[in-house]
Design a binder for these strands. Structure first.
Length: 489
RNA sequence: GGCCCCAUCGUCUAGAGGCCUAGGACACCACCCUCUCAAGGUGGAGACACGGGUUCGAAUCCCGUUGGGGCUGCCA
């Protein structure tokens, strides 16, 4: 790493349980995890739940679950800021004793009234020298130096300078005594000896405040002075409108992708590419290859769009690369974990006969049930569009169906090869290609024009069901043709 | 408004002064393969935001413009 010291690499991710864990947080976690693994460091999980009012307990487990799913195991934690308040108060005491923070009893309205029209927005330092006592009901503000600049050294962006004059005396503790995010983060990062702060770019503007606090703490108590961490602000992830993805307007929850049947390794692989690229230009690589080559210095600067289409493609590639048994295993696990389908669907001779065919067609696991839905009477249904196109829209469909019924019935062995040659004979008789002749049969027996290969499917379906379905289709056609008791058009 | 960040095909990116008539991937189009759909194969269209510099030479360095974004809370 670039610390230039022998300091141990200790990184952390600090998600807040205010919503579902999203793809941006997952990428941040992945990069942090990589840095830890690559440098023999420690990956720490810290939940930022200092704001008790907004904190949602059910989101807490969700974060842990998403991380486990992505195989981003943490070495320490989860720490919860809500349980570390003593640490923040100690930091506050240190800052107070050294005169770096002061009490303020201004309300938001008062500040606004005073600063309206000011060129430099934000708090005006009104209480700076009023010498107010520190007591409940009063917020605590940091005394930002009037002049000079604060430099944030960022591995990705270089030295970013902020004029202190443009930084207001920000609040570090609420009037109820609770420490605010900036303060808590610094106290925690120091306490945990964090060596690299790797997070989204949206935090860059508040970083000088963190640096100011950090240095104030070092100055106040040189005995426990700690070197500033290396900062790395990752480009944010944006939606199609180029805005930061938000839990509110965009579909970004890791949980959703999991429920849809994305493979965690495909997700991680795709995520790794959002802001970084593999050395030789390859886009598919293993976790180990990622760990071996990932470097913060190579992370891009500009925002990246989370392209679900490409993710879908990656997922399909990963699914197809799975050994057959593993594919079945993933399907079952997906069904069990999400409750989206009965795990038993992915079991039995019928499934095993069809699984390889399903595997090469699905991009996400959630598509799998649909491919084998034709097997059971309960889930079998004929798609209206397919019916009207391939059956009603085909004048020869009735004849083809009838002939197929006849020939299939006469088959000694109800197997794919024989079924195929029978239908080929029918196709030839009708002067059309097999592709065109199989459509009505497919719709009648499998329910739609698209799906698994017809003959393999029929073999698995079995003679009885197949013939019965053809009969029913023939009946349905007959009814449609028959004069319908005065209801005819 | 203020502060900060960013700027190569529609998208993700390669490119760290000559190797670039700018490469790859997704998406798209065409063709091939083919029992449908996929998968696969082949080919195609498609970008250095603009303007100044610096240099023998700039996508690459500098400045400006424009554009986009982030932050601007007693949220995280």
């Amino acid at each position: 790493m670039t610390t230039g010291t022998a300091q141990q690499v200790r990184v952390r991710i600090a998600p807040s349980p205010t919503g579902y864990f999203h793809v941006g947080g997952a990428r941040t976690a992945l990069y942090n995890w990589c840095v830890a693994r690559r440098n023999g460091g420690v990956f720490i999980l810290r939940i930022e739940d200092t704001d008790r009012e907004r904190h949602q307990e059910e989101q807490y487990e969700g974060i842990l679950e998403a991380l486990r799913w992505l195989d981003l195991g943490w070495d320490e934690g989860p720490y919860r800021q809500s349980e570390r308040r003593a640490l923040y108060h100690a930091a506050l005491d240190t800052l107070w004793d050294s005169g770096r923070i002061y009490a303020c009893d201004c309300t938001r309205e008062m500040v606004e009234a005073r600063t309206k029209g000011n060129t430099t927005p934000g708090y005006d330092g009104f209480c700076r020298d009023r010498g107010l006592e520190r007591r409940p009901g009063r917020a605590l503000r940091f005394r930002v130096p009037d002049g000079g600049i604060t430099v944030v050294h960022d591995v990705i962006r270089g030295a970013v300078e902020f004029a202190n004059a443009t930084i207001e005396d920000f609040v570090v503790a609420k009037s109820n005594g609770d420490a605010l995010f900036v303060l808590a983060v610094v106290a925690d990062d120091r306490d945990m000896s964090i060596s690299h702060v790797i997070r989204a770019e949206e935090h860059l503007p508040t970083t000088p405040k963190a640096v100011l606090i950090w240095e104030a703490l070092n100055a106040a108590d040189p005995a426990v002075a700690r070197p500033l961490p290396v900062f790395a602000h990752l480009p944010i992830l944006v939606n199609e409108r180029r805005q930061k993805i938000s839990k509110r307007r965009d579909r970004v929850a890791i949980e959703d992708y999991r429920a849809q049947g994305f493979l965690p390794e495909a997700m991680a692989n795709y995520l790794a590419l959002l802001g970084w690229s593999f050395a030789d230009g390859r886009e598919l690589f293993s976790r180990q290859e990622l760990v071996d080559t990932f470097r913060l210095e190579d992370v891009n600067h500009s925002p990246a769009f989370f392209d679900e289409k490409k993710l879908l493609h990656f997922n399909g590639v990963y699914i197809r690369a799975l050994p057959s048994e593993a594919f079945t295993d993933r399907c079952r696990r997906w069904a069990r974990d999400t409750g989206s389908a009965p795990p038993s669907l992915f079991d039995g001779p019928e499934w095993f006969a069809l699984a390889p065919l399903v595997q090469e067609r699905v991009a996400v696991l959630a598509e799998a049930p649909g491919y084998v839905a034709f097997l059971s009477a309960e889930s079998f249904s004929i798609d209206a569009d397919s019916w009207s196109r391939a059956v009603e829209g085909d004048a020869e469909a009735p004849a083809i169906l009838a002939e197929a019924r006849e020939r299939f019935d006469g088959l000694e062995a109800f197997r794919a090869v024989e079924l195929k040659s029978e239908l080929e004979a029918i196709a030839e008789a009708h002067g059309r290609r097999l592709g065109k002749a199989q459509a009505p049969v497919r719709v009648a027996t499998l329910g739609r024009t698209v799906g698994l290969p017809l003959f393999e499917s029929l073999e698995v379906l079995g003679r009885d069901k197949a013939l019965e379905r053809i009969d029913r289709a023939l009946e349905r056609i007959g009814q449609a043709l028959a004069p319908s008791d005065g209801h005819s058009v």
